[in-house]
């Protein structure tokens, strides 16, 4: 069975996964991608991905693929025809910077899908990144969570603007879907419902 949950008009269902995720080849040098250091990397211009990894990434010749942000930036010219054909999506790691994507792809909505990869489920940067893509960068197409995606984070992912969740292979996606409905009337405004409870309901003291 497919591990992919998609949300259509706020109704969740199991969907077939049409997108293949392209991985970077393993690095020979230790990746430097800790949170907090990103700020410093930006200042020093230091990269977290090597040239060898970028050129060595194998992108399938056909079909719908989601490529790593760094590969997308480095090899965009080569991918342009397929971008125009709507066959290319981009995935972003939680330590990466969304501005880098926006700088190289002025119209994000040319991408049918953006995925955020979360290495550990407890990495809450994914929520801020989803929110920023939706509210700051105006991304309207499919926004997918990939990686260590587990049931108990789904409600937060939904509220942060994700409408597609690739549940970790060893877990039951059908059961996970239930958690999208954990709370029926959350307090604060978020991406899925920008109005906080005090604007949505007539709350009287």
């Amino acid at each position: 069975m497919s591990q992919l949950i998609k949300l259509n008009d706020n109704v969740a269902h199991i969907a077939e996964n049409q997108w293949a995720v392209v991985q970077l080849p393993p690095s020979l040098v230790e990746a430097r991608k800790q949170a907090g250091k990103v700020v410093l990397f930006k200042l020093t211009g230091e990269k977290t991905v090597s040239e060898e990894q970028l050129s060595g990434t194998i992108i399938p010749e056909s079909g719908k693929v989601i490529v790593p942000l760094s590969v997308f930036i480095a090899r965009k010219a080569q991918l342009q025809a397929r971008i125009n054909a709507g066959e290319i999506g981009v995935w972003v790691d939680t330590h990466e910077v969304l501005n880098d994507l926006a700088e190289h792809q002025a119209d994000l909505n040319q991408l049918p899908i953006i995925a955020i990869h979360v290495e550990r489920f407890a990495d809450g940067r994914i929520f801020s990144l989803g929110l920023l893509l939706r509210t700051r960068y105006g991304f309207k197409n499919e926004l997918r969570a990939i990686g260590d995606v587990l049931r108990d984070q789904l409600f937060f992912l939904k509220r942060s603007g994700f409408d597609s969740y690739l549940i970790r292979a060893d877990r039951n996606a059908q059961e996970a879907m239930l958690s999208l409905k954990d709370f029926s009337a959350p307090y604060q405004g978020a991406v899925d419902e920008p109005r906080p409870a005090f604007l949505r309901y007539n709350r009287v003291a």
Partner: peptide
């Protein structure tokens, strides 16, 4: 308190 309760963006801070 209400705003911070189950705040989706800040559910898993550093």
């Amino acid at each position: 308190r209400q705003w911070s309760t189950f705040h989706p963006e800040f559910a898993l801070l550093p």
